[in-house]
Design a protein around this nucleic acid. Structure first.
Lengths: 198, 198
DNA sequence: GTCTATAATTCGATAGAC
DNA sequence: GTCTATCGAATTATAGAC
């Protein structure tokens, strides 16, 4: 009952009733995230998402209203940046590189960053989300470490790494182990912040 | 170069007759490059390309056969890398950064690199072209300067810069002047090759 | 060489039966 | 809540008149 099409899900007392719809709702979202991450926004169809989720295409429309609103739901992303307040300045570049490598590689089921990068290049809404993540999550986490220009260029480096390694799959980059990438790329990130790391 | 529709271009004597068709042929290709660069592969339609070129959509099909073959023609790209053989090793990172900035910004009509980056993320054929450019043009130009792993990661840095500055338009990066970018990003590239630049 | 007309798909979205 | 049927729009590509 609760959770109708236009309702928020605040049913008050019917706690069990919502779970059923929330199950398919989550399945749809997971399938959408996979499709968007793997094939981009334009090539992702409602029909394919429904097939992956094992339900009827009409259900996708019922739960999310439109492809754009489904996409918006898929764009809700938390970078889960590490707490760097107690890390020595010189160690921060290495920590960042390894954190992002672990974020990309350690959780195969988490397509959030892949989705963001793949779609932001051809979809303005996704690009806006990337810019928002930078000001809402990256800048606050690194604001005490560097100025906004260097934070922006740091994102250039990290997104560029993800681009060549996971999307374009350039062999010279994709065939390296994560440790090799960390060892080679950390000095490059450090160079952005000066020899001392700040 | 004669170049009829299904012919190979070895026409022999009709030199003047072909020029007319080569004109519209070039107009189609220029319009296609602009559309692919600006909107990506999927959102680019034959109709829009034809409208930009001021001709009928059927002409695009006549000259290029299909959207894919038109795309292939648009992917013929020369990076025009500078000759670095006489450049001191320590100066190479700065030269590379400034060359790419000039390449992206100095020639507004040249959408080749923008096209490549925008389309490679969602189109495997374009991604394959990027990988080809790396082995055919970048690696030979830099092979004496660094190993293949660092060349790959250098491309990560340069493509990442283009991604945030020209495609995602992250303000912290896009609002900088080209000189600011060169000054800030060159040390980062140098860091990839060690303090001495090699 | 250029354009009209249209075939053949594909997709997002809607209406409504059960 | 779930599914069938379908509309309307957009697209690539083809056939053929002029």
């Amino acid at each position: 009952m609760t959770t109708q099409t236009g309702n928020d899900g605040r049913g008050g007392r019917e706690d069990r009733a919502v779970r059923r719809s929330d199950g398919t709702r989550a399945a749809i979202l997971a399938a959408a995230r996979y499709r968007f991450a793997e094939h981009g926004y334009e090539r992702t169809t409602i029909r394919a998402v429904a097939a992956d989720a094992g339900i009827d295409p009409a259900m996708v429309m019922r739960y999310y209203g439109s492809k754009d609103r489904l996409f918006d739901a898929a764009l809700a992303i938390d970078l889960r940046l590490p707490d760097l307040r107690d890390v020595p300045r010189a160690d921060i570049p290495g920590r960042l590189v390894r954190h992002f490598l672990a974020r990309w590689e350690g959780e195969p089921t988490d397509d959030a960053l892949l989705l963001l990068l793949r779609c932001a290049v051809t979809n303005e809404r996704a690009a806006e989300r990337v810019r928002g993540l930078l000001t809402e999550q990256v800048a606050p986490a690194l604001g005490a470490f560097a100025d906004e220009r260097r934070i922006g260029l740091l994102c250039s480096q990290l997104l560029g790494l993800a681009l060549t390694r996971y999307l374009l799959r350039v062999p010279a980059v994709a065939d390296l182990t994560a440790d090799e990438v960390a060892d080679l790329y950390t000095p490059a990130v450090s160079g952005l912040f000066g020899r001392d790391g700040g």
